[in-house]
């Protein structure tokens, strides 16, 4: 089993860093699934005490890594179904990539990822960095300990299935949404999303002391149709407001638009299109209260 990959473009390196930093804000550990064409990350701390939602990201590996070589351990070389599945600390990985962050004064020439064995398997992150005070590049190496998941256990590490929401709305004001959800979590533990096919989204938060209704209007309807008599269809779902807030607060990407899908009384799915072929998803199940 072998894996090595190399990034050279500063913008892609920063974006990759921002994706990993987002995951690190959500959960302690992340699953890294390396395929021949795609790289996936999953964070899911549903069973922990933390209130993080299930989030996963799929990226087109070759976009970020001009050099990308993955040799799985399996006996069928060339099989598309072959992967390397790793579990590692998202915090460590994010810290290892921190040098790629935008806003630092250093310039990074290249950044390699490599699977190697020290006392245990590691993803080595090797960055060649030039600081303003040095003429020559320095090599910064971080070895992120990883656990290799054997194929027999892969079913437990599958990418989640996308639900099929009745309505998907594009919300252009992510910043306002983030601030709103962050404050609403202090009002009530649950938050109700009402969406309608006429492009309206209402967020309702209720407590003993107050009822707060926030209205987003004239949203782009990505999916969902009114019924034949031109009546608008309405769906709603109540979710954990802390999880919703954790999702928005974790986002480290510059996107200003997010798609919110509502599967009536079942779940809310969130989708952030980082670029074509690079998507961040989250699913928040309905609260049954």
């Amino acid at each position: 089993m072998k894996f090595r990959a190399k990034m050279l473009d500063v913008l892609y390196m920063r974006e990759f860093q921002a994706i990993v930093a987002t995951l690190a804000k959500l959960a302690k550990d992340c699953v890294m699934i390396l395929g021949q064409e795609r790289m996936h990350f999953i964070v899911n701390e549903e069973h922990c005490s933390t209130s993080s939602p299930l989030v996963w990201v799929t990226i087109a590996a070759k976009d970020y890594f001009p050099e990308y070589k993955m040799t799985p351990a399996a006996a069928h070389p060339g099989d598309d179904e072959d992967f390397i599945v790793l579990v590692m600390s998202a915090t460590h990985l994010s810290r290892a990539l921190a040098v790629l962050r935008s806003g630092t004064t250093s310039t990074v020439h290249s950044c390699k990822l490599k699977l190697k064995q020290i006392q245990f398997p590691c993803i080595s992150v090797i960055a060649s960095v030039v600081s303003p005070s040095s003429a020559e590049p320095r090599e910064m190496v971080h070895d992120v300990p990883a656990t290799i998941i054997p194929a027999s256990e892969w079913p437990a590490f599958m990418l989640p299935k996308m639900p099929s929401p009745q309505i998907v709305l594009g919300v252009p004001s992510l910043r306002l949404m983030r601030s709103l959800v962050d404050k609403l979590k202090n009002i009530s533990p649950s938050l109700i999303f009402h969406g309608s096919t006429n492009g309206e989204l209402n967020l309702v938060s209720e407590s003993e002391m107050a009822t707060i209704t926030s209205r987003f209007t004239r949203l782009l309807l990505h999916k969902g149709e009114g019924n034949s008599s031109h009546q608008s269809t309405e769906v709603s779902c109540s979710v954990d407001s802390r999880k919703m807030s954790a999702f928005f607060n974790a986002l480290q990407l510059p996107n200003e638009e997010i798609s919110i899908g509502i599967d009536n009384e079942n779940c809310i799915c969130l989708q952030l299109d980082i670029r074509s072929n690079v998507v961040l998803h989250s699913i928040l199940p309905a609260l049954c209260v």
Partner: peptide
């Protein structure tokens, strides 16, 4: 700065 958004709060 955003005419598409508004909030109504009802405080006891």
């Amino acid at each position: 700065d955003d005419e598409q958004v508004s909030t109504e709060c009802s405080i006891k």
